[in-house]
């Protein structure tokens, strides 16, 4: 058991959960069917619960969520990507939930400061992952149009996936094994969905990936502005 709280890791994992939670909540009132709206927002709620716990390990959860500047967030660039069409949201969910499920699985097996959360959240994330897998099968192996749009979404987000396996200070994780298992499982889902595993670069100077260092893509600033403006305009507001 580490005596001090690994703040870097708490912020990285907490920011992933917070930012994806906010993105998913943007579907409220816009999802294709009511059941799906409920599903996406329930997943957002699970992630928000994780974010609250993780950010509270690093400091005051509200200050961290609402008063930090863009460059202070260390979430993956993948989770800040706009919802796009439904296929883009599902591809983002597939890539991230498989990663988070494997990552929490490793943390749950350890005895570090994140084990209590991971043991609990890994069961919740298993449902997120199942949700994404079932939709990937449904869209990939659906109509010609849904197949084509799902393939396009998988391709579009592929360049954000390499960053997930960059080691995070304070996490006792076998990153190489995590990446290998992730590639296997995502590849398996895509194959069953009659989709093709994208072949483009997943990391490198020309590909995306520096969210963990505080470098973000352009849509993130606009998302933060919307997320933070109420708290910044009316400090301490509550209802």
């Amino acid at each position: 058991m580490t005596a001090t709280v690994p703040t870097t890791a708490a912020l990285a994992l907490g920011d992933d959960a917070l930012v994806l939670s906010h993105r998913l909540a943007e579907w409220t009132g816009h999802a294709p069917v009511l059941e799906e709206e409920v599903a996406l927002v329930n997943i957002a709620l699970d992630l928000l619960g994780q974010a609250r716990f993780l950010l509270s390990m690093a400091g005051d959860e509200d200050e961290l969520a609402y008063l930090r500047e863009e460059r202070a967030f260390t979430n993956l660039q993948l989770v800040e990507q706009p919802n796009g069409d439904f296929a883009h949201t599902i591809a983002r969910q597939l890539y991230f939930s498989a990663y988070q499920h494997l990552l929490y699985g490793q943390l749950a097996d350890g005895d570090g400061p994140f084990a209590p959360l991971a043991i609990k959240a890994v069961h919740e994330v298993a449902y997120h992952r199942d949700h994404a897998e079932q939709w990937t099968l449904r869209l990939g192996d659906g109509t010609d149009v849904s197949h084509e749009r799902m393939q396009r979404a998988c391709e579009a987000l592929w360049r954000f996936t390499g960053e997930m396996f960059q080691p995070v200070e304070g996490l006792d994780v076998d990153w190489a094994a995590l990446e290998a298992t992730w590639l296997d499982t995502v590849g398996d889902v895509l194959r069953r969905a009659t989709l093709t595993l994208p072949e483009g670069p997943r990391r490198g100077a020309w590909s995306a990936g520096a969210g963990r260092q505080g470098l973000h893509t352009e849509p993130f600033g606009r998302m933060l502005a919307e997320m933070q403006h109420l708290h910044r305009s009316h400090p301490g507001a509550s209802w």
Binding site: H123, A126, Y127, D130, Q134, L137, R138, D141, G142, T143, H147, T194
Partner: peptide, 15 residues
Amino acid sequence: AGGPVSLALGPTRTR
């Protein structure tokens, strides 16, 4: 043994 159970996927194009 944990994990999601008993969820059904309806027929798709190839199954």
